[in-house]
């Protein structure tokens, strides 16, 4: 086949995917980055350079909300890393135990919250934690801890952490599954060799298995990072677009939604919305780069 001849079947095979992907994903992505450099006055779109970003980071009308949302977003991510991964690893470690009965049942049951929509999860927990219904206070009462109860979703100091924990509850199935798969792929010979050396139980877990599943933990971390920094649905379903109380649960996704669409008396501003989207893009890109260059090259890959 001559090199100059176009292989039409290759074009036909590639065209639909490339066209849809380019038109709906890549083009709007770059167009959004471009729109962030414009502003609109009297229905005329004008190029303003980095003015939108200066306002976003420095103008008192904007920067307070932006840094609040960014800080909240990091706290949201931090809680995920702190709670979700250890629980996921612990569950996976137990599940991967040889000759454990009903493992498939536990696995399927624990994964159920992950398949539910944010709307269901948000409202279900809102009802359960509601002081009106009283399930949460009654249950605490039953174990003598009623004094600990507070309307967690309604208090500024607890709301964000509570939502992060709800999100952890929902998604713990994913790290569990990925680490479970990684644990199962550790060859039996390695574990037997460790046993011969006297490493069993917990010691074997910390010294042998944990280092071997580090790459999976890295993947989970970056997936969580990307997921958290474009999260929106749970906060919107549970707290509304205003991310109450008093913006205590505002994260970049809800902030961008409010800015883009407007809320109450403020009109929507697609250009500031694009600026926030650009900031989210930069943060996610930075996270992915840190993962690719720093973490993945440091973690040794074990070839079995």
């Amino acid at each position: 086949m001559g090199a100059s001849r176009i292989k039409w079947h290759v074009v036909v095979f590639l065209a639909p995917a490339v066209l849809v992907y380019t038109a709906i994903m890549i083009f709007p992505l770059f167009n959004t980055l471009r729109l962030a450099l414009y502003s609109e006055a009297d229905q005329v779109r004008a190029f303003v350079g980095l003015e939108n970003f200066r306002r976003l980071f420095g103008d008192p009308n904007w920067s307070g909300a932006f840094w609040n949302a960014l800080g909240n977003n990091f706290w949201f991510f931090f809680i995920h890393m702190l709670v979700q991964n250890p629980i996921g690893i612990a569950l996976a470690a137990i599940l991967s135990h040889p000759r454990l009965r009903f493992a498939a049942f536990y696995r399927s049951a624990i994964f159920i919250p992950t398949i539910l929509s944010f709307v269901i999860v948000g409202f279900a927990w809102k009802l359960i934690l509601s002081p009106i219904w009283g399930i949460a206070p009654d249950m605490l009462d039953a174990i003598g801890l009623k004094s600990l109860f507070a309307p967690w979703l309604g208090k500024e100091e607890y709301a964000l952490t509570t939502l992060a924990l709800i999100s952890v509850w929902q998604f713990v199935g994913i790290p569990m599954m990925l680490i479970y798969a990684a644990l199962l792929s550790i060859p039996e010979e390695i574990l037997e060799a460790a046993e011969v050396e006297g490493l069993t139980g917990m010691a074997a877990f910390w010294k042998i298995k944990l280092p071997l599943i580090l790459p999976s933990i890295g993947i989970i971390s970056i997936l969580t990072f990307v997921g958290n920094f474009n999260a929106f649905d749970l906060i919107y379903a549970a707290q509304g677009a205003l991310a109450g109380p008093n913006f205590a649960t505002d994260i970049l996704g809800t902030f961008m939604y409010r800015t883009f669409f407007g809320f109450q008396l403020q009109l929507g501003d697609p250009h500031m919305g694009s600026a926030i989207a650009t900031a989210m893009f930069a943060i996610i890109l930075l996270g992915v780069c840190v993962y690719l260059f720093a973490i993945q090259t440091r973690i040794r890959r074990y070839q079995f």
Binding site: A23, I24, M25, F27, P28, L29, N31, T32, L35, I222, V226, N230, F232, G253, M256, F260, P270, G273, S274, A277, M280, F281, I284, L285, V288
Partner: peptide
């Protein structure tokens, strides 16, 4: 795979 499509929402809506 890594870049969420939501980032481009403003332009997707315009489109």
């Amino acid at each position: 795979i890594m870049i969420p499509i939501r980032i481009g929402t403003v332009a997707i809506l315009e489109l």
